[in-house]
Amino acid sequence: MSLYFEHFAPAIIAAIAISALCSLLSVIVIAKRLAFIGQGVSHAALGGVGVAAIVGLAPQQHFLVVAPFCILTAIAIAWLSDRERFSADAVIGAALVGTMALGALLISIAARHGARRVPGWEELMFGSVLSVGPAEATLSWIVFVAILGALIVVRRPLLFWTFDEQGAEAFGSPTTGMRMITLIMLGLAIVIAMRLVGVVLATGLLVLPGAAALKLTTRLGASIVLSLVLGQLGLALGLWASFSLDLPPGACIALALLALFALSPFGARLTGAA
């Protein structure tokens, strides 16, 4: 087992940062009802992977294309639903289908033309955290620290926008800027979460810890700390199950988080938050 852990140390180190990052954003995602937009943006990553594959980038360099692709998709969703008066659900649904179809086409074309290495569907959908190397682990921590820093700097206007967007606007607190910052953070988080749990399950990391934490407490600070703790707990349980039972880590982590979420209403009765 210890050899196992030694070999996968970069993967575990990366997973801790990714889970912490997603758990932090999770409280905002739940409070601001951004789960579906997260789903749209995470699936947009497939379109980004398709573009990266066509350009001929190695999988380690996909981040350079996938991150801007996801962020631009998130901004396009926000812009279309704000300015063009489409319903947000319709825009997200369209983006989800459009970018996935684009990704499927481009990946298929790249494979046909002998691209260096096109990631397999299973890897894209469910992640491949155990193949993460030191460079990606470092990147995960850089993104986590950068987003943590940004969250600390903008905490008040971000909280104002998250809690009461109309009030924030009426009091001259920035709202468009906060929406953009949140979407950029979400896009970045999804791109690095993809390596851990894949496109399909990335939303789980962004939704489940915050949803469970908000069930368990009626204090804002406690909800953020709890979300972090639950995210790490889900990660530890998932990786433990994956190592012990030789099962795919992405699915194990997602199911562990789901179990914690499912238990949260019972926990809420114990803490008196229900």
Binding site: I30, P157, G167, A168, S173
Partner: peptide, 21 residues
């Protein structure tokens, strides 16, 4: 008041957001 009531923001915290601004 169309606030996101799922977020457990206390009265004090809500006032603080505007006051700090």
């Amino acid at each position: 008041f169309d606030a996101e009531r799922a977020l457990p923001v206390s009265v004090r915290q809500m006032i603080e957001m505007a006051a700090a601004r």
